[in-house]
Write a protein that binds this DNA or RNA. Structure first.
Lengths: 134, 134
DNA sequence: ATCTCAAAGGATAAATTCATGCGGTGAGTT
DNA sequence: AACTCACCGCATGAATTTATCCTTTGAGAT
């Protein structure tokens, strides 16, 4: 599974995608999503460094989606936060090397599942995450 | 993803399924699988308590698959070790309540993936895990 | 200029998962 | 009976992930 941090990131980006072009403060986002305020700011900061969101300090400050991020696949988020090349572990059986020539007993079925997950992450864009709620 | 412990359990059961009716010592299983010996014994002990393996103490002792476990789906292993009702998290977006009436933006696609994983775990039996290697 | 607000950043702590160490127990051998 | 082997259980430790605290920085308001 994607880590809790990654799931938080999806939720935060979805919340910002729902509120385009306005600044939403961290405190406010914590209220909207239920994510701990102090932790959420770390994640948004990471997302900022990777070009997904913009931020503004000071009075009336907050976070806002970077327009250029709207069309990016959410796989990019996973890569940015986890450094992962794929979404799910390569092998459900735990083999360090598991592929077509040296498959574990679950290889073929797991491959399908992993591909479906990768496909979802590649096809879903950040704009698709727009969401209001917690 | 299934926890490392669960993946270890699959690997251990697969190794025993390949060696029916003989006792394999913990030390030996560590060599066969590459799983830390002291950790592996914990997992096998858990599996014993849940009726997947039998063990024998003392000289020539070791672990052996419980014959009645052969036909059980490997979902049972996951449930026994993680107490999980399903294989993957209910919601990839992190919502505490995510279902058809209150779906997250990823709900429908993720549902397919989760069902595929559940299906794999229900259809695969312990006997199917038979495997030699690490 | 000064004050206030909110993000940025660093350090620390809590929680969970994974792994190790070691004395104790039971089974078989000699 | 004494010895050895290997599982058993408890306690401890390491690593990773998640969460909190507190100080600093920058932007706007007064």
């Amino acid at each position: 599974m994607y880590s809790r941090t990654t799931r938080y990131a999806f939720h935060l980006l979805g919340t910002l995608a729902r509120r385009r072009d306005v600044l939403v403060s961290g405190e406010e986002m914590a209220g909207l999503t239920g994510i701990p305020a102090n932790y959420l700011s770390k994640i948004l900061n990471q997302l900022r460094k990777h070009g997904f969101v913009e931020s503004q300090k000071g009075w009336g400050g907050g976070f806002r989606l970077d327009d250029r991020a709207l069309g990016r696949p959410i796989m990019d988020v996973l890569v940015a936060l986890e450094g992962a090349a794929s979404s799910l572990d390569a092998c459900a059986f735990g083999l360090p090397k598991c592929d077509g020539t040296n498959p574990c007993p679950l290889h073929d079925q797991w491959e399908q599942i992993r591909l479906a997950s990768d496909h979802m992450l590649e096809q879903t864009r950040i704009s698709d995450l727009a969401f209001d709620g917690r």
